[in-house]
């Protein structure tokens, strides 16, 4: 059974249609890259998966639960979906470790000691153990994004959504963030990545989807698709 199911999804913003009938399924452990020109609807599609955007028509389910079920608890659903943003969206009022422990403490009611231990482990995984007590404004873009990934992982999500995670970074910082994402993929995380990094897509993705003006125009394995475009 696939982890994410999207059927006939349409989404309009004040008259203009951003998504014009999207169908896709994503299986557990799969890494899917969404590529396409800006304005093609790939970020919108990603944001519909955790209800940051409401769809106008269609059906989306995550882990066999319909997103638009009347009884669904959106906050509970979002715990399953980690999200990483282009602009990082770290909380500037909290230091790195508190950024990471905020949600486990506030949502899962975890105890302080164990969530801090876990946060330190995650910081070690992303190579930023020594930055635990630093505030976000003292970090480089690449470091911010790695903290943001650690923050999302602290909720133990089943799926990670990445919305152009390297687009706001200086070129020399892109590599460190992609490396963390590669490790995550190798670990078996289900990932949906909106990106312009063709190298990453080629190397890591199980499937690549090319979007243009609100529809998925092509879909396939990176080998078949990137190397031999129709």
């Amino acid at each position: 059974m696939s982890l994410i199911q999207v059927k006939g999804v349409r989404k309009s913003f004040a008259g203009t249609e951003a998504l014009k009938g999207i169908d896709l399924t994503i299986d557990k452990g799969e890494v899917v890259c969404l590529i396409g020109p800006s304005g093609s609807g790939k970020s919108t599609l990603l944001r519909c998966l955790n209800r940051l955007e409401e769809i106008s028509e269609g059906f989306i389910s995550v882990d066999e639960q319909s997103l638009y079920d009347k009884n669904i608890n959106t906050n509970k659903l979002r715990e399953k979906l980690g999200m990483v943003f282009q602009a990082f969206n770290l909380f500037p009022n909290l230091n790195v470790i508190n950024n990471i422990t905020l949600a486990p403490l506030a949502v899962k009611k975890a105890d302080v000691k164990s969530s801090e231990e876990k946060a330190m482990k995650l910081l070690e995984q992303v190579g930023l153990k020594e930055k635990a007590l630093v505030y976000p404004d003292k970090l480089s873009g690449g470091q911010k994004q790695r903290v943001a990934i650690a923050r999302a992982l602290a909720m133990e999500p089943e799926i990670m959504l990445f919305d152009e995670p390297t687009s706001a970074l200086d070129p020399e910082m892109v590599g460190e963030v992609l490396q963390v994402m590669k490790n995550l993929a190798a670990y078996g995380m289900t990932m949906v990545v909106v990106t312009h990094e063709m190298g990453f897509a080629k190397e890591v993705a199980d499937r690549v989807m090319f979007m243009d003006s609100g529809i998925i125009v092509e879909e396939g394995t990176p080998r078949g698709y990137i190397y031999k475009p129709i």
Binding site: N75, R78, F85, N89, F91, L102, A106
Partner: peptide, 27 residues
């Protein structure tokens, strides 16, 4: 306060009021 702050907090599973209280209002 940047719109991304609310989105960031909500995506972590925080309710609107928790996000307001812990993230938005302090800023």
């Amino acid at each position: 306060v940047d719109k991304g702050q609310m989105e960031g907090a909500r995506c972590l599973g925080l309710s609107y009021s928790k996000a307001m209280q812990k993230v938005i209002l302090p800023q």
